[in-house]
Design a binder for these strands. Structure first.
Lengths: 142, 142
DNA sequence: TTAAGTGCAAAGGTTTTGCGAAACT
DNA sequence: AGTTTCGCAAAACCTTTGCACTTAA
């Protein structure tokens, strides 16, 4: 259940990073949320629990997780960022053009495409990002 | 060869947009370049020909082409933008993590994935973006 | 002639950074 | 006790906007 969270915390301590209450709260939210929250959402959701929490701390904690390979940043068209800390491995998303909702979905593996890209270009491919854009059910029904 | 450029120019005139020398130069560069240039590159390349050219004009011309459906903006991880005005339809790219080169490659159609995304999420999908990240031949050999 | 475009400079918005104060180990 | 981290505020960065001057049609 919270095994992954504990592993991340152990890994932090091993690297002489401290597990402060703010850091713990931010990384727990980031690692468990399905909503692909942005810095602002993380900040707002934890403000009640930590009235002095700053956006800078949110950014720094997310960058730390990203550097550990435990979170992917998803820069959006509008210049904002959304975090995917629940499943940091590359996977496709659908993104609503109106409400900016970001969702996962089950997709077949893209290895064949990656190999096509590598052989066609000579690149050494390390990752990918695939977003489908459109309108979510909520938005195209209202 | 330059048929598409002429079609775009006709379309501009029909909509009471004017074809100024700056606008013509920017859109010609954007519509023909294979290099996926950013605003800065467009600006630098045309500066010699138009010493008073401004970045604002580059941005505005690109936005105009984008609104006509003749150009796709590719926001990058680092917050900058690259333009794809040569083939505005969605298609995959490979992007070098070191030199930030952006390249096209021939890829099989992704319709099946798009249908998977639509049926799995209920979204009405209108487009996609697929980037593979890695090191280009120049960068992994040096 | 006149409405649209250019270019400069300022504004806007998000993310990053510097640094003194606080706090984890 | 000694570092790390926090949080505030300022800086940095790219992009957009406002406006007077210029110019295409």
């Amino acid at each position: 259940m919270d095994t992954r969270l504990n592993l991340i915390i152990d890994s932090l301590r091993q690297r002489d990073f401290r597990v402060t209450p703010q850091r713990y709260a931010v990384l727990k939210l980031l690692c468990t949320s399905k909503a692909h929250p942005g810095p602002g959402e993380v900040y707002e959701q934890l403000r009640q629990q930590f009235p002095t929490l700053s956006l800078a701390t949110v950014y720094k904690t997310a960058a730390l997780l990203r550097d550990m390979g435990e979170l992917t940043e998803l820069p959006m068209k509008d210049g904002t960022t959304r975090y995917d800390g629940r499943n940091p491995a590359p996977h496709p998303h659908v993104i609503c053009n109106r409400c900016l909702k970001v969702m996962d979905f089950d997709a077949p593996p893209l290895d064949f495409l990656q190999q096509e890209a590598a052989s066609a270009t000579g690149f050494h491919i390390a990752g990918f990002r695939l977003d489908f854009f459109g309108l979510c059910p909520d938005c195209h029904n209202n």
